[in-house]
């Protein structure tokens, strides 16, 4: 009886020490899951998910406050990647957050622009170039297509156009679906 209690006690102490050591030795700094989720998001910073940017959305997903299907620019690919990362089932995009659209880029009609800088203040990635009372222009390579600049423009001179494929960005299409296995 005594031997049994002693043995169990010793085992408990030993495992306790091991666990304690492991918690110090393998301590995880910060919250990598937010980083991992953030890395999968498209970084358009469009806010369609209901959060002010991709990282806040990532934090919300990690905290369980948001679902994984609220990112229209990421579309199915992002949802599947998130489901994969978090070990959840993929689900269709939540229509409340918007619909999947082709990739867009903003264009300023420079004849109309009055140089009000409102769009510059709205752009989350500083992709609009210009100064007060001077015509603005969009750095296409850095535009994420978030559309946040469209609404603030007082003269409606910003339009979103789908990105055109050229020889360099063109890719082979998927083969036609195979015959169903039988």
């Amino acid at each position: 009886m005594l031997a049994a209690i002693l043995a169990l006690g010793l085992l408990a102490v030993a495992f306790g020490l091991m666990l304690g050591f492991a918690s110090i030795r393998f301590k995880v700094e910060g919250d990598p899951i937010v980083d991992k989720i953030d890395a999968l998001l498209p970084q358009t910073q469009c806010g369609q998910c209901g959060f002010p940017g991709c990282r806040p959305y990532a934090t919300a997903i990690a905290g369980g406050e948001a679902d994984i299907n609220q990112c229209p620019p990421g579309g199915e690919t992002t949802i599947i990647a998130l489901a994969d990362l978090l070990g959840r089932d993929p689900k269709p995009l939540n229509p409340e957050n918007g619909a999947v659209k082709p990739k867009m880029v903003a264009i300023i009609d420079e004849n109309i622009c009055i140089g009000c800088t409102l769009c510059i203040q709205a752009c989350p990635v500083d992709a609009i170039l210009g100064a007060a009372k001077h015509m603005h222009t969009i750095i296409a390579a850095e535009c994420t297509g978030c559309e946040l600049c469209v609404a603030p423009c007082p003269v409606d001179c910003i339009s979103m156009v789908p990105i055109q494929h050229n020889i360099l960005t063109w890719k082979w299409p998927a083969p036609p679906p195979d015959m169903r296995p039988g």
Binding site: V105, I107, I108, D109, E110, T117, I120, Q121, D126, I128, L129, G130, A131, A132, T137, I138, I139, A140, A141, V161, Q164
Partner: peptide, 21 residues
């Protein structure tokens, strides 16, 4: 169709300091 405006910054300068009033 309007030609795509892919113009980059002419001198690579940032708008950072200009638009703040």
């Amino acid at each position: 169709p309007t030609p795509p405006a892919s113009a980059a910054a002419p001198d690579g300068s940032r708008p950072d300091d200009d638009h703040q009033t």
